[in-house]
Design a protein around this nucleic acid. Structure first.
Lengths: 226, 226
DNA sequence: CGTAAAATTGAGCTGTCTCAATCAATGTGG
DNA sequence: CCACATTGATTGAGACAGCTCAATTTTACG
């Protein structure tokens, strides 16, 4: 249970106890969402900043011809985006992947905390920096890597993030993504993703069951991403 | 000459007069760089924040197998990246495209200004937001657009940025990019970029001469990017 | 148990790449 | 001011990674 149901960001800010023991002043009500629902729409004006407590989501962009790109996956504990602290307009949609719940916090509240404490200021900005670094990495993945490499990068990225958040079992992680999600995140086709994953599985790299992913040969997988 | 030689960011901050009339207290010496030089290396620890005054540069990532990706182009007046205000480590290299010059400013000086004035704070963060928005757009370009579309997006993006910075002639812009740069920015091959540009030229979309680009049919070009 | 969503597989097809050669432009040293 | 060297642009032929279309099987779930 460790790590589930609490929002890492808020713990970092000291707004929530690691072992959440009930009501504290900052606790907002949880809003729940169901799988495959659009949570927020592109260009929506957000007066508050949502933070995921449980479940997975994705920031997505829809092109006119139906093509879809996933910009990033949002894991339990993630703020939708730190950009909302500085810009009210959401520049992409947020789509739920699983069901889950989130809380919302006042931008003003967040910002006040930032100005009050340099440590919180640094923390928030480093969260935003991480978003940017991950975006830059995705750019080079999409621009200069083959399909198989991209899928490997994605798996390892999720692996590392979940691990760091304490959301990984020993050698496997919760993995609710459909192959369509992987396709939209890697700029590939569901059919092709299926072939890549089939290769991975057949060569003993990973084991994917309905809702979990196990990495059998991390070294080899990582070698694909260098 | 308008707009050349002064750094937009600094004007925005009130650190430099729009019509630069000599020495003021904030003016640092200009450092010049020559074309095709690596200006800063990935993972370099930057104690200061460089701002481009003249010339073009690019933030680039090199993969081990020689593949290269350009994350963004830096135009006259651009800060290398606002991320340097919050994180000393540069996460990619900066390569000069043309020759030009830049100035450096103390991170501390910048940050102090941010804390002193909420307006400057907003301004800096909105610069960072723009970087992030452009990165997100590039992700969807690379993930979900054809080669021709990507090139069109790139041209229009540069066009719009130069225009906004007051660095465009009536209908043409200074365009020092080699086809290799376009290839590395769009995730394509120089050979293929050449073919795409050939198409564009032959169909009367754009006219490219040695160092300038002219858009002949903006509407059609923009239609490719929707 | 039936139905809808997701995964899998196969057969072509095409956008983009690789390789390679040629040509144009620019800069450099003598 | 010329000859050469270097960098970039152009073009063609063939190859292949990844796509489309379409059919089939598996899984989830009310």
């Amino acid at each position: 249970m460790r790590g589930l149901g609490i929002c890492r960001v808020l713990v970092d800010l000291g707004w929530e106890e690691p072992r959440s023991n009930g009501q504290d002043t900052m606790t907002q009500e949880r809003r729940s969402f169901s799988a495959r629902r659009i949570m927020f729409r592109r260009d929506e004006i957000m007066s508050q900043v949502p933070v995921l407590c449980e479940g997975w989501a994705a920031s997505t962009v829809q092109l006119t011809n139906g093509r879809r790109q996933i910009l990033s996956f949002l894991l339990p504990g993630d703020m939708i985006t730190a950009a909302l602290l500085f810009d009210q307009r959401l520049h992409y949609s947020i789509d739920a992947i699983t069901r889950g719940c989130y809380r919302v916090f006042d931008r003003a509240q967040f910002r006040e905390a930032m100005f009050r404490s340099p440590k919180i200021f640094e923390r928030i900005l480093s969260i935003y920096n991480e978003e940017k670094i991950r975006a830059d990495r995705l750019i080079t993945d999409l621009g200069r890597r083959t399909g198989a490499e991209r899928v490997a990068c994605l798996i390892l990225d999720l692996w590392d993030r979940l691990r760091k958040a304490g959301l990984a079992e020993n050698d496997s992680i919760d993995f609710p993504l459909r192959q369509t999600h992987i396709a939209d995140a890697t700029g590939l086709t569901p059919v092709y993703v299926n072939k890549v994953l089939g290769e991975f599985r057949r060569s003993g790299l990973v084991t994917i069951t309905e809702r979990s992913l196990q990495i059998n040969d991390e070294a080899r997988l990582r070698r694909m991403t260098t």
